[in-house]
Design a protein around this nucleic acid. Structure first.
Lengths: 149, 149
DNA sequence: TGCAAATCCGATTGAATTACTAGGAATTGC
DNA sequence: GCAATTCCTAGTAATTCAATCGGATTTGCA
């Protein structure tokens, strides 16, 4: 039941873009430095996010990345699904794979995994990047993360 | 966010033992046949469950396995934790690893993962093997799974 | 007493995944 | 034209997954 670093790093990187939303593109190097992530690795993750339409890129010298939508319109669930795939603990409750299990009909565990999936989705689909920014602003009242650069 | 087959098979195997609870030991071969699991593989999983005190074994010719507690006293969460480890989506909200992340203090994502963990736990810790047997009995009213052997 | 059925235990293995690392091409602001 | 950036592809060491196998030990039963 682990989330890989793809999802973890992805959410942190997207938060960083949300944090600077409206102030022009942010370079990957900046994001990587602020969140302690390898630039090379982050490069791959952001490519997936870009292809999924969650971020836009600006090439060239002062280029970087920008959220494709406003922070309030992107949820943690959006990011995780793009980077980790469907949030189904097992394939038989993954709607993208309708008939993956021959035992589905008589399987007693299927409804349990569906409940787990729903519980996870309810959390991650209700938290937006805007929510995260709000939380961070509240928490850092007077310390640390108010550095102007 | 996937559950490995360890957890899936483990829950199904434990359900099978619950299904025959009070009727003497059930051999691994029987469990494996009924749940379409490799006996060799299941052998490894049941060994873990035994060492964790969830099942007892009876060796010898008519031996097999028996739940160590009554079905109502074993939850899906018990089984998953034994076979898959702590249900923390990331290590920083795993209570067994107190100081695994230097960024914990200023990390905005930590509380999200804690919410995900809690949501999962609320589901799997509230479902017992007895619940599963009850559900199965309800569902199979008149079809299939009432085979006398 | 011996056979068969079972649990036990440890080793191996092919495939996939993870988390990077690296190299180099293309784009663009200054 | 140079430096900073995005873009694309490939490689790679380590780990985990999901079995598979061989053989030792225990025990019920004829």
């Amino acid at each position: 039941m682990k989330l890989s670093t793809k999802g973890q790093y992805g959410v942190r990187a997207m938060y960083e873009l949300a944090h600077s939303y409206g102030q022009g593109p942010v370079s990957l190097k900046t994001v990587a430095d602020r969140q302690d992530i390898s630039v090379y690795y982050l490069e791959q993750l952001i490519a997936v996010l870009r292809k999924a339409g969650l971020v836009n890129s600006i090439r060239g010298a002062t280029g970087g990345y920008v959220l494709a939508r406003e922070p309030a319109a992107i949820t943690v669930g959006d990011i995780i699904r793009v980077l980790e795939g469907p949030v189904a603990p097992v394939d038989c409750v993954n709607d993208d794979l309708p008939d993956c299990c021959a035992r589905a009909a008589q399987c007693i565990t299927k409804q349990i995994w569906a409940q787990v999936r729903d519980a996870i989705e309810q959390v991650i689909d209700s938290i937006t990047l805007a929510d995260m920014c709000r939380e961070a602003a509240k928490a850092n009242f007077g310390e640390g993360r108010s550095d102007p650069e």
